[in-house]
């Protein structure tokens, strides 16, 4: 409790300040500050999860991820500490809230998952079909552990996807088109569920894409999905939405998926990331 209070005070100051704010170590405090600053059923819908935040099982993923990150691995026996996530080799603080972004060395806009794969292959020498590279879902996967650790170094920091490179803008704008594009046997688009505030699908309160304070929680992954008993990623959330929409399965890491992530991150710009979060 005392620890919580100690974190909450500088956080409140940080959130009022400019985008250069540093990371906070308490996702629950970040979420609470959002709840206190707005009125949203989506943010508060699971009282149980709010209470569980200090014991979030995703914290295990985070801890295991830190060890994995720093351990020399792969055929080249090096750690991931030399991996550049956009802010220079080894710089993790604030890297995740600036993804997806353009990387000069690949000429592509990449999300965290794609960048990790890139570093596992080039830096550590893992072959593409190694389980470390290709198993991207579930708490037991290296990906979810590493992603949780890396992303958590941006907890409390405002989403700030760079739009300096023309490719970053192109991907974001194409993502917006896809978000509103109606198709499939049910004629759905993303906006069918996320286009109005305060709506429910059955018992679940849906996040509204045009409310950044609500949307930041919606896109704060990795998070522990209580109903699935696993730590999950943005790509997994996307996959499940697409499945519910009755679309063909989306290819994780495809440019299509990156375009959607670019747009959805844009929608939360300026609001603090809650990582790791807990979700239903």
């Amino acid at each position: 409790m005392l620890r919580k209070l100690l974190v909450a005070v500088p956080l409140a100051a940080a959130m009022a300040g400019p985008a250069s704010a540093g990371p906070s170590d308490d996702p629950a405090a970040v979420l609470q500050a959002l709840i206190d600053s707005t009125s949203s059923y989506y943010l508060t819908q699971s009282e149980q999860n709010l209470m569980m935040m200090p014991d979030n099982p995703a914290l295990w993923s985070l801890e295991e991820g830190e060890a994995l990150f720093k351990t020399p691995r792969g055929p080249k026996n090096v750690s991931l500490e030399g991996c550049d996530f956009g802010k220079g080799p080894g710089v993790l603080e604030g890297a995740y809230v600036e993804l997806p972004r353009y990387f000069k060395d690949t000429g592509k806009v990449m999300d965290l998952g794609n960048r990790l794969i890139h570093c596992m292959k080039t830096l550590q020498g893992f072959p593409a079909d190694d389980p470390a590279v290709k198993e991207i879902h579930g708490s037991k996967s290296d990906h979810m552990k590493l992603q949780t650790y890396i992303a958590a170094q941006s907890n409390g920091m405002p989403w700030n996807p760079p739009m300096d490179h023309p490719l970053e803008k192109a991907m974001r704008d194409a993502g917006e088109v896809v978000f509103y594009r109606r198709s499939g046997p049910f004629d759905f688009n993303c906006a069918a569920c996320h286009g109005e505030p305060g709506k429910r699908v059955r018992a679940s309160v849906l996040p509204y894409a045009q409310d950044p304070k609500e949307w930041t929680k919606a896109i704060s992954w990795p998070a522990f999905r209580v109903g699935q008993d696993n730590t999950r990623s943005s790509q997994h959330r996307l996959r499940e939405c697409i499945w519910q929409m009755r679309y063909p399965p989306i290819v994780a890491g495809s440019d299509l998926s990156i375009a959607l992530l670019s747009y959805w991150t844009e929608l939360a710009r300026g609001q603090p990331a809650i990582i790791p979060d807990m979700k239903r």
């Binding site: 023309p166 490719l167 803008k169 192109a170 991907m171 704008d173 194409a174 993502g175 917006e176 088109v177 896809v178 594009r181 697409i242 679309y247 063909p248 399965p249 989306i250 290819v251 495809s254 440019d255 299509l256 998926s257 375009a259």
Partner: peptide
């Protein structure tokens, strides 16, 4: 990609760039 309109790029990502299985 930067030479396409957002609509063209969206169609391209869906149908040509193997965005869906």
């Amino acid at each position: 990609y930067t030479k396409m309109t957002p609509q063209e790029l969206a169609e391209y990502l869906i149908f040509e760039a193997k965005g869906y299985k």
